[in-house]
Computed example of a mutant assay.
Amino acid sequence: RHSFFDLILEPGEKQTVTVTLKNDTNREMTIEQDVTSATTNINGVVEYSPNDIEPDESLRFNYDDLINAEREITLPAHSEKTVNIELEMPNEKFDGQLVGGLTYREKIKEEEVVPSDQEGLAVTNRFAFVIALLMRQNKNTVEPDLKLHNVAPGQVNYRNVINVNLQNPKMTFLNRMHVNAKVQGIDNPDIVYSVNQDRMQMAPNTNFDFPISLEGDRLRPGRYLMTMTVNGTKDDQGDYTATNREGEEVTYRHEWRFEREFTITGAQADDFNERDVTIEPENRSWLKWLIIGLLLLLILLLIWFILWKRRKKKEEEEKAKKEAEIAALRAQLENQELPKIPKE
């Protein structure tokens, strides 16, 4: 029994490999057969089975275009069947490896789904296994490379992280990958997050988001600097050393150093903090009382303005009335004849 195929083929050459499936149960089974190119997940582990990870832009040959295989296979009870998988090597010459996998899973019918006690959930039990599939045209050595793409805030399992996207653009594995990284605030240097993680692996022509945990802290807006050293391919004769989490010094053949400034906006911080399940919601009761206080002040100002307006209007009316009375009295006096004074 083999857990992988490692094939060397000439450009354009075709070959058929076989997989034997066996059903030891008392019922008929339908097996789903999937073919996919390998990817790298956020834990630095190579995935050979189908997933939601997008193919990397450096992937020149996708297994979907190179392999012809049945999508479903029916196995009667207590039977076995040999399945043929037709492979075709690309016509273009290259050094390196094409890496992918064959995944076999039992197809579950709706009536076989077991309801769960929790509303909206269902439980299914089915077997699955994966066979790694490697194809190459020669045994020429290809040295790995590593590139830094984006650095941005994100989440893993609803917990805040800083995602550092790393790409392996070469047609070879990056083995025994060791990452030592730090994120520090530029506006606030007291903000520091670091990680030291080793024993990772990247599949050829893949990328993944390496997460730097905030360890339950809130994301805070501002400018930050990410520095990272990545080592790969353990080699006692290598030129680079790194210390792992256990305090052991390990020698590597390759090393890459990256540095990148990035910014976390207020909107990003609010959005991720609200969705982080480890962060207690901020106590905003002060804001409620502030709003209530401002509303009361506004009402008092409005009442004062109305009363002031009424008072001013009354004063103006009284002033106008007095002025009218004075004017009327003056007119009356002017219309009266002055008394004549007798002559002596």
Rank of each mutant, 00 (worst) to 15 (best):
F208R: 01
E255A: 15
E255R: 15
Y252F: 15
L302N: 13
V156F: 06
I212E: 00
V250M: 06
L214M: 12
K109N: 13
F173M: 14
G222S: 08
L9Q: 05
N41P: 00
I291G: 04
R310S: 14
M228Q: 12
K340M: 03
N335K: 15
E80Q: 14
A331N: 09
S49G: 03
K313P: 00
I108K: 02
A69M: 03
L66R: 04
R60Y: 03
N84F: 10
R245M: 11
H149L: 14
T141D: 12
R159T: 13
E119L: 11
Y193W: 14
T265W: 07
E72Q: 03
E259S: 14
Y158Q: 07
K22Q: 11
Y158C: 00
E337H: 08
F305L: 15
P11V: 12
Q184W: 06
K314R: 15
R159V: 07
D187Y: 03
T25V: 09
L75R: 02
T206K: 02
I131Y: 02
K340L: 06
T206Y: 02
E280M: 09
V17Q: 11
I279H: 03
Y63D: 00
K22M: 10
V195L: 04
V17H: 06
I279G: 04
M202C: 11
N160M: 05
L219S: 06
G247L: 07
M89D: 02
L287I: 15
D209E: 13
